[in-house]
Design a protein around this nucleic acid. Structure first.
Length: 930
RNA sequence: GGGCUCAUAGCUCAGUUGGUUAGAGCACCGUGUUGAUAACGCGGGGGUCGGUGGUUCAAGUCCACCUGGGCCCA
């Protein structure tokens, strides 16, 4: 070391290469790469091989785009939990997954293929979908890594892996084996020109003009001419009418005109009479909707009854309050049909033409319901019939938005089709599921209530989809449409698929697929046709507990934790539960933790119109991963999680504070080696013990918060610690001894010993939340450079230091600091306002203390030098008050002369060659410089 | 429209079984320092706890209704 030239150079000022600015955008990726190359994930697992395991099972994100900020939030929380648990000694295997199948991908790929004008079949479509999914797996994996997520990327799972697909089919086979799967009709959107089923995402809404008609249904079994009047804009569905629905708690009244009376919901009467042109009418009886339910009406032109049922969704906004129900042609109608045991009746063929089923009037048979330029033939014909039978009360044109097919642009219809269902009540399945939840913990606790509600009310699970990009339902049909649904056959096929993947189903003939399997006698020799449907993708991800937890030796079943957004109460948590109860008779998770959704600064859902980016990457490339993680962990994620520039700026500032705190500490211990200079806790000075005590408190708070998954409380504690305990108190107080005392002064080494403990502890506590800066600071602390052998992630969670008899000193210091806050600073501030002093070292304070007070007792144990240091003033004078009185403080400018080295005012300076005049204490230190 | 849920200073959060003038950190304003300096200290202003009504000696904390937001359905 060069000989000091200036007095300032004789001070031990902080020194560190730890940069003040993070430059996270460049340096974080380098650190991630270092982690990866040094195999940090594997080392973390190895460290805890003998520990208990903590299995967090990853819910697979969908692979159709960049990582969304909400998905990033989810992964960050998972990573933080796992880093914490690992530090606590748990073995924490983490196998991330990808949800690959599904309509959104098929939709995008189909659009692309259609734009290229190439012909394609389902095999080619699936090929493209696979490529699409794979490319986003690459993208998302890189983005997750960038967030700092540590995982066993070598063993990630994909729902499109052959082994996984086979597991899906085995699960389906379990459902079949237990007799839970049945075939029934359900309405779907149907495009007549394309002769295909459509999903909601394939629907576009356009303005459309429909006939608006009022039709009367005669009430049966009563005297007189009483009718219920329905209103509809799809006359062609009337032949499939099987009921009329009313709202049970609305009032209905009898509108009398001529010798007939019409039952109409009371709020709709005026509108109805106007539409029908009734000028001369009177109101008769009134009753509740529930009183009408149970009555029976007559279909206006088909020989059958149409019962009156009640339904909650009947509105008073339009129509008559009496709703035409065709269970085969609408979702509400369908559910009402299920509820009342109605047939899911749909007398249309694939081309949208009425079938001749013995019920449809002959004049309608063969007519198409498809709307063309001149309207729908079916509508015209039905209106004709209604007119001739006198059932039509009024008719006009109705302008509204109507769903159209995204390809043919023609209006779609709702049409019931054969689908596969899982019965949820057979074998007590539903009850067993709800029972299985009893062993599951929920955070927040209301999650239990929510999932329970879904389980209770959901109708049977429709598991078939008319799609290509998914796992096929391996069922064969004979030429009469009979289905061969055989669990033995499904298991047989799953073995083939476990090797070759599902493409086999699409590329091979039935004969090839069945090669090696003996068909049941009744099916031998028949010509078989492959089923076209695929399984609901919720089965895909819902099997992950089997496909992943049971098939990997690192993991165990059930998982300790599932952690997803609260939308998954309805989704993955539920589908996983059904499959798990069927296959394993218990829930696949011990705890369900849910987070809310990311919303904007106003608390509204984030949308493109906000003009804010929604991909995680757009934030990471601007702020770095630690800042984004700090944002995530600062929020109470159980409710909505707001994100705005202001909030991110806040995270930036918190990050800077953290960074500066660590940087100051690194600088302060730059010449300290625990081995060479370490001071034992018992030997430490009181203020150092106080700092350790406060650190113990921080450990308790952060640990408690982490155990409850309340990271925001941990972050708040850490922020408070950095500013209140360190920056404004401890760090401020110890500057004098660190800077001005001899390097080896016991007091200085005591403080450095404590500081190192506080430093390492703080780093370990922030490690789960902001791993980049934590690892960086740790490395600088260990080696003085960017990286070190024994990385932070391999350290255990900090433990509280035992202070023993030091607790008394701690209590004294705490009391004195409280007194400083409440009295001393006030006195100093008033001097400062009067411009009598600048920094507090310019002052002398007088403590006027009531002798028998608590503070009086404390002062007996403490020296004036100690007090001056604690108050950061040049001198302290204690004046005892008479026996009665209140403690108070006065302050004045310190007497004497200012030492140019320590800046403290002393009675007299001493001359030291070659430095000049300094305080006696500094003179002693300088003497050693020779 | 239904189920679940949330609502405390500009922002992020505390607030124990209802009990004295509702707290913290950040931001803001003023100010000091210039030996943590694109940093740090000190001081200050700021909330009637979404609204209304009720229970109670006493409510941010219990009850009812309303308003606004979120998720999931319809």
């Amino acid at each position: 070391m060069n000989a000091p030239e200036k007095l300032k150079d004789t001070l031990n000022l902080p020194k560190t290469d730890f940069p003040m600015r993070a430059n996270a955008v460049v340096r974080e990726p380098a650190r991630m790469k270092h982690w990866e190359e040094s195999g940090i994930y594997a080392k973390m697992q190895k460290k805890n091989l003998d520990g208990p395991s903590f299995v967090l099972h990853d819910g697979p994100p969908f692979t159709n785009g960049d990582v969304h900020v909400g998905t990033a939030l989810n992964k960050i929380l998972k990573d933080s939990i796992l880093r914490y648990k690992n530090a606590r000694g748990f073995l924490t295997p983490y196998l991330p997954g990808w949800d690959c199948h599904g309509l959104p991908i098929e939709h995008k790929v189909t659009k692309k293929l259609r734009a290229s004008k190439k012909e394609f079949d389902s095999v080619q479509l699936r090929q493209e979908c696979e490529e699409f999914s794979k490319s986003y797996i690459e993208t998302q994996r890189a983005q997750f890594k960038r967030l700092g997520v540590l995982a066993d990327w070598e063993k990630e799972y994909r729902t499109m892996d052959p082994g996984y697909e086979a597991e899906i089919l085995r699960t389906f086979a379990d459902f079949v084996e237990q007799g839970l799967v049945y075939r029934s009709k359900k309405p779907v959107y149907w495009s007549i020109p394309c002769q295909t089923a459509l999903a909601e995402a394939e629907i576009e809404y356009y303005d459309h003009i429909s006939p608006s008609i009022y039709v009367r249904f005669k009430v049966q079994g009563e005297e007189g001419n009483a009718y219920l009047v329905i209103w509809t804009t799809t006359p062609w569905t009337l032949p499939a009418n099987l009921a009329v629905a009313v709202h049970p708690r609305e009032s209905y009244c009898e509108v009398k005109t001529g010798d007939v009376s019409y039952w109409i919901a009371q709020p709709r009467v005026d509108e109805f009479c106007k539409e029908c042109g009734f000028s001369d009418y009177s109101i008769g009886e009134t009753c509740n909707g529930s009183d009408l339910a149970g009555k029976v009406t007559r279909h206006p032109f088909i020989d059958r009854d149409s019962p009156v049922v009640s339904a909650e969704y009947v509105t008073m906004d339009t129509g008559t309050g009496c709703v035409h129900i065709a269970p085969g042609h609408g979702l509400d109608d369908y559910l009402t049909g299920l509820e009342h045991g109605l047939e899911i009746y749909c007398p249309l063929d694939d081309g949208g033409k009425y079938l001749d089923d013995g019920q449809i009037p002959q004049e309608l048979v063969g007519l198409s319901v498809l709307e063309k330029a001149d309207g729908s033939k079916a509508n015209h014909a039905v209106l004709e019939i209604l007119n001739t039978t006198g059932s039509l009360i009024a008719q006009k044109e109705y302008h509204h938005q109507y769903p159209h097919c995204w390809r043919s642009k023609s209006p779609v219809i709702f049409r019931a089709m054969d689908q596969w269902f899982v019965s949820l009540d057979k074998e007590d399945l539903r009850a067993r599921c709800m029972d299985g939840l009893k062993d599951v913990s929920f955070t927040p606790e209301w999650g239990r209530n929510r999932i329970h509600g879904f389980l209770e009310s959901r109708p049977d699970w429709c598991i078939s989809r008319q799609r290509s990009w998914g796992v096929p339902i391996p069922v064969f049909f004979d030429e009469d449409g009979n289905a061969l649904l055989d669990f033995g056959l499904i298991k047989f096929l799953s073995e083939k698929i476990s090797v070759e993947g599902c493409n086999l189903w699409f590329s091979q003939t039935p004969e090839e697929l069945l090669d090696g399997y003996e068909l049941p006698d009744a099916w031998k020799g028949k010509k078989l046709i492959k089923g076209q449907d695929t399984l609901d993708v919720w089965i895909d991800s819902g099997c992950s507990h089997k496909a992943v937890l049971r098939r990997n030796e690192e993991t165990s079943w059930p998982a300790d934790l599932y952690l997803e957004g609260s939308d998954q109460h309805r989704g993955w948590f539920q589908s996983s539960l059904w499959t798990s109860i069927v296959s394993s008779q218990a829930a696949p998770y011990r705890r369900i933790l849910t987070h809310g959704f990311v919303v904007n600064g106003e608390g509204k859902k984030i949308s493109k119109s906000d003009g804010k980016p929604q991909t995680a990457d757009s934030y990471v490339t601007k702020y770095g991963a630690d800042v984004l993680r700090l944002w995530v962990c600062s929020e109470d994620f159980r409710r909505d999680i707001p994100l705005s520039d202001e909030i991110l700026d806040q995270a930036v500032r918190a990050y800077r504070t953290l960074r500066n705190t660590l940087r100051f500490q690194l600088g302060a211990i730059h010449d300290f080696s625990q081995k060479e200079h370490g001071v034992e806790v018992e030997e430490m000075s009181p203020v150092d013990l106080w700092a350790l005590s406060k650190t113990n408190e921080l450990i308790r708070e952060v640990t408690d918060a982490c155990e409850k998954y309340e990271f925001h409380r941990a972050i708040q504690s850490i922020n408070r610690f950095c500013s209140g305990i360190l920056s404004s108190t401890y760090h401020d107080v110890i500057k004098d001894r660190l800077y001005t005392l001899d390097v080896n002064d016991p007091l200085r080494r005591s403080t450095q010993s404590a500081l190192l403990m506080v430093f390492e502890c703080l780093i370990k506590l922030i490690g789960p939340f902001t791993p980049y800066i934590a690892d960086e600071a740790w490395a600088f602390g260990q080696s003085g450079g960017e990286y070190c052998e024994d990385a932070l992630s391999l350290q255990n969670w900090p433990q509280e230091k035992v202070l023993g008899s030091g607790e008394i000193a701690v209590s004294d210091i705490q009391n004195l600091l409280d007194f400083k806050d409440s009295h001393v600073n006030e006195a100093l501030e008033s001097l400062r306002v009067k411009k009598e002093i600048g920094q507090s070292l310019d002052a002398e304070v007088e403590l006027h203390i009531f002798g028998d007070s608590k503070l009086g007792e404390i002062l007996k144990r403490r020296s004036l030098v100690e007090l001056a240091e604690l108050f950061i003033v040049s001198s302290v004078v204690v004046k005892n008050l008479p026996s009665e009185g209140t403690n108070y403080v006065t302050a004045q400018h310190a007497p004497g002369t200012r030492c140019p080295r320590s800046w403290r005012w002393v009675p007299e300076l001493v001359y030291v060659e070659p430095w000049g005049e300094v305080s006696p204490r500094c003179a002693e230190v300088l003497a050693k410089f020779g």
